[in-house]
Structures are given as C-alpha cells and as structure tokens.
Nucleic acid binder design. Structure first.
Lengths: 110, 110
DNA sequence: ACCCTAGATATAGGAATCCTATGTATAGGA
DNA sequence: TCCTATACATAGGATTCCTATATCTAGGGT
C-alpha cells in the first residue's frame, strides 16, 4: 500500500486523539486510526511502537501491561494529564495549518 | 521563529499552487507563500531553492534567467503542462488527508 | 569612502519523522 | 502441521526540510 508522504507529522496528533477517547493497546491504536480514517491514515506497527515509547518517555501517555485471556500480554496506553494538556494546542496548530493550506490552494477538508 | 513540524510535506503543494497562478522568481515564491498564509507557512530560502531545482528536474516547473534593472539576475519559474497535471491529484490527496484528520480529531480548517 | 541592510541565488550538512525489513511469541483454524 | 491473525520490539534507512554558510548587487546612512 502506497502511503503518501503528506501523512508526515500527523502521527502524534492521531495517537493522542484516539487515546483521548479510550484506553487502547498498541495494536489497537493502529487499527482505530485506520478504521476511523476509512483507511486513509495507516501507521505500520513497526513505526507505531517507537512513537508510543517516545510519547511515554515524554510523559504524555502511560502504558501498563495486562494479561489477556488469549495470546500475548498487552500493553494498554492511556493519555496522562500532561498529554491531555498537549492535545489542545496541537489541535490549534493543525487548524492553523489547514487554514493556511486552504488559503494557498483552495483545498478544503469537506 | 519557531516553525512547527506539521508543515512537512506541504512544500510541493505550496510551490506548485503559487506558480499555477503567476510566474515568480524564487525569492518571490517564498514571500507569496508567507503572505498568502498570513505568515503561517514560511519556507526559508535555503530550503526553497533546492526544492525548486528538484521540481525543475522533474519537469513540473521551468525556470528562465532574466536581467532585472536592479540587483542580481532573477530566475523566473512557471508551471509546465506536466506540473499542472500533477497539481490536481496532489490537491485530491490533501483533501483526503484533511478529511482523515477531521474524522480522527474533529480538527477542521474553518 | 565605509558599513549595513535588503534583495537574490546557492550549497553542505544535519535533524526530524516515518517506513522497510526483520525478529520474537501465542492462539486458533484449515 | 502450517498458516494466519494477534501482539510487541529493534535496526537501519529514506524523505523532507532546516541551520549554517557563502556569494553577489544596489542603495541608504554616516
């Protein structure tokens, strides 16, 4: 699947956004993002996990191991208070960016 | 000036978009983009010129030297037919991307 | 005459972001 | 038994754009 380059920079926003609504483990995060964007945004697991570690190191998300009845252990991530605080300005940044692109090219999201 | 990272990937679209409307030299391209986005998108000249060379090598834009009455020579760029053909699908890609982000986070351009 | 600023183009090197390739491990279906 | 889906993990690299630096010209201030 050819992932276009315009996805760059949106990973953080995407991960924080889905974790803001529910507690999810890594594998689930990737699926939620693909599902909610109708497949338009897809983060491969091999790039997703390092992002989760980075966000956790920053204190924006917090992971906890849990045994599942089937298969491997899962590491569930939730948004921390610090992460929640980051999400609002991040959204504003993206809104500004969208406005800028719209002004330049007429591209709109709807 | 702290340029946020979310600009990534938009350079091509920005350059082609402004050149689709008028013939501009490099220095002017940077100013048009900053001006039209109210300063929200700014490409430093040192990163802009290599992008122009790349786009020209691809045949999407075409540059021509011209003497100006004052100062240095200017290299004016115009969109080629091939570049014009690229712009439409590029816009569609960005529209898809905007829709995806909007679905994920509720971020909208307006 | 001198320096500084603005205009204008150019290149080297590197930071940030995300992907490809690869590996490990478990459960369940064909 | 093998394959697939589930689930986490790391190394290395590609792409995109920036910082730092350089060159050259014209014009204004002192």
């Amino acid at each position: 699947m050819a992932i276009s380059k315009i996805k760059r920079g949106s990973a953080e926003l995407a991960i924080l956004s889905v974790l803001a609504e529910e507690r999810l483990y890594g594998y689930q995060v990737a699926h939620r993002i693909a599902e909610r964007t109708l497949g338009e945004l897809r983060f491969t697991l091999a790039s997703l996990y390092p992002m989760l570690y980075t966000l956790e190191r920053r204190g924006w998300i917090k992971g906890a191991w849990e045994n599942s009845t089937s298969g491997r252990k899962r590491r569930y991530y939730r948004l921390t208070a610090a992460g929640s605080k980051q999400l609002a300005p991040l959204r504003r940044e993206w809104e500004g960016f969208f406005r800028a692109i719209a002004r330049l090219t007429g591209v709109a999201h709807a």
